[in-house]
């Protein structure tokens, strides 16, 4: 009988410990797929890219297993073929600059169009919102290449837009839009707009619009309501949308390729070139990692800037 008294607490403790073990096992089990993807599908290839960027290019593509810093050197600089002088790789830097510039502009355009759109949808009657969201999402069901060609059809010299303008006599000769940065901008803004609308809509749908009335009631004008009440509360959506647009824009490949042509190459196209015709895999790898660093630096700056504003806004 004395046994029971002494064993019961122990068994209780055992039970608790067993339950904890069980919990750990469940958690590990649930985490496994995500971990597998992160390790094998994300970190693995990245590691390969990192290694390749320090190797020597093979003559017909691929790599030779010979350590070299040449690829990294070539990302930013080049040695003059004749004088052997080192100078900045203008071509590479201008491509990087164009990528950043166009991505930023696309993000701003998407924000300017996407924010009112999301606001519009979020303020429709509950039953009709799904319909409007469907309109936003439908383009996603179509292949990116086809959507890009559709844009091309609209803006090329003999395309819908120019034909119309020439037809009604506004202009004599078509406006050259294809193969310009403008074309790339239009294409990317069109392609990535849903990625801006979706997260903003998600935070707006949770937004309590009686706060807008409260704002008006307390002498805030439309603009003040937008700036002081709506924006701070849907900011998470705006931040997420901006990141979702900016990041894939930096690495965009199809859109600049089809609409921008060779003259308006962006980083994505340039990297592809190294793995294809350029036959310089290490340079391609180094450029890809540079892109990654640009994205990360941009994100850190962005998140910091947004965070600081928050401190100021509520301090």
């Amino acid at each position: 009988m004395t046994d029971i008294a002494s064993t019961r607490p122990t068994s209780m403790r055992d039970l608790a410990a067993a339950r904890k073990r069980e919990e750990r096992r469940t958690r590990a089990f649930l985490l496994a797929p995500a971990m597998a993807i992160l390790i094998f599908a994300a970190s693995g290839p990245l590691l390969i890219v990192l290694v390749y960027s320090f190797l020597t290019p093979g003559d017909y593509g691929g790599v030779v297993w010979e350590f070299s810093l040449k690829a990294w050197f070539n990302v930013f600089a080049e040695r003059d073929f004749f004088t052997e002088e080192i100078e900045l790789a203008d071509a590479h830097l201008s491509i990087m600059w164009r990528s950043i510039k166009l991505s930023l502009m696309t993000t701003v355009i998407c924000l300017i169009i996407g924010f009112p759109t999301a606001y519009f949808i979020a303020t429709r009657p509950r039953g009709t919102r799904d319909f409007w969201m469907l309109l936003v999402i439908i383009p996603f069901w179509t292949n990116l290449l086809i959507r890009t060609f559709a844009i091309m059809e609209l803006i090329r010299n003999e395309g819908t837009f120019n034909s119309f303008l020439v037809g009604i006599g506004v202009i004599d000769t078509p406006i050259q839009m294809m193969f310009t940065e403008f074309a790339v901008l239009v294409g990317m803004a069109y392609v990535y707009l849903p990625l801006m609308i979706l997260p903003i809509y998600a935070s707006m749908e949770r937004f309590d619009f009686s706060l807008v009335e409260a704002g008006y009631d307390l002498y805030a004008t439309r603009f003040q309501v937008l700036r002081r009440i709506i924006l701070p509360l849907v900011k998470p959506g705006v931040v997420a949308g901006s990141i979702l647009v900016f990041v894939p824009c930096l690495g965009a490949y199809v859109t600049p390729r089809v609409l921008g042509g060779g003259k308006n190459m962006m980083l994505g196209n340039f990297i592809e070139l190294q793995f294809g015709q350029g036959r310089n895999w290490p340079l391609g790898a180094a450029l890809a990692l540079t892109l990654l660093v640009i994205v990360m630096v941009a994100l850190i700056f962005y998140v910091r800037a947004v965070g600081r504003e928050e401190v100021r806004g509520h301090g």
Partner: peptide, 10 residues
């Protein structure tokens, strides 16, 4: 307001 509509970020 019935729901008070206080500004949650302030």
């Amino acid at each position: 307001f019935q729901s008070y509509a206080l500004f949650p970020h302030m």
